[in-house]
Amino acid sequence: MAILTVNNLKKVYTTRFGGNRVEALQDITFSVEQGEFVAIMGESGSGKTTLLNILAALDAPTSGEVLLDKEPMGNIPEKQLAAFRRDNLGFVFQDFNLLDTFSIRDNICLPLVLAGKMSHQEMALRVEPLAQKLGIAAILDKYPYEVSGGEKQRSAVARALVAGPKLLLADEPTGALDSKSTDSLLRVLEDVNRQGQTILMVTHSIRVASHATRVLFIRDGRIFHQIYRGDKKDRDLYQTIMDAQGAVLNGGAVQ
C-alpha cells in the first residue's frame, strides 16, 4: 500500500520581477510504500530540497499533487496544516534544529505538548522507551549545547518519532556528523525502519544512501533512475549506487 504518492509534481520559481523562470522540479512522479526506507540522491541544486519542502507542506507545488495516505495534501486548509504536519510527519534536519531553550527531554516532548492531548505522565511513558531505543536515555535532562552532534541528531530523531508519524522525512541527517556518529545514526534509522517506520531521506552521500531499501536519483528536477536493494547487502548496494552515480557524471544513460 502506498503511503505517499507524488504525481507529476512541478515547481517553477520566478524571480521577483518575473524575469527568470527556474524550473526546480519538472515532472516528478513516484510513490513510497508503507515500511519503505527511500533515499533520494542528487547533487546540490538538483531540486531535492524543493521536493522535500513540498512533501513537508512547507511549500506548495506549481502543479501536480501529493497524497499522504491517499489524502491530497493540497486540500488541507492552511489553518490545519500545522496540526497535519504535527500528526503525520516527522522531521530530521541536517543541523538538528533542536531548540536551545529546552532540555533534550523537553525538545522530544515538544510535538506532544503542542498537540495538547496528553498529560505529562503519558508523555514520559512515550519518551522513556523511545530514548532507551535510541540510546539517549542518559542525556534526557541535558541541554543541546551539552551533548555531541550524534546525540543531538538521535534526539532530533526521537522528537520526529515521538508522535508516531506516518512518514519520517530526513534532510541530509548525517551532513553535520562524523563517520562514527553517522554509522550509529544510520543503524538507528534502519532499526526504526525494520520496526515498520516509513522513511524518506534526502542525501548526496552514497554511503548513507546505501542503507536505504530503495534509492531514487534526481537531476535537473527529474527522477531519472532508481535502484532497488532487493536482497543486496549494504556494500553491494554501495557499489551499484557508485556505478549509477559514475554514469550520471559521465552524462550517459543508465540501463
Binding site: R86, F93, L99, L110, L114
Partner: peptide
Amino acid sequence: AIMQQVGMSAQE
C-alpha cells in the same frame, strides 16, 4: 523557523 517545522502553526 524551527518551531514551525516541528508542528506549530505560524499563528501559534
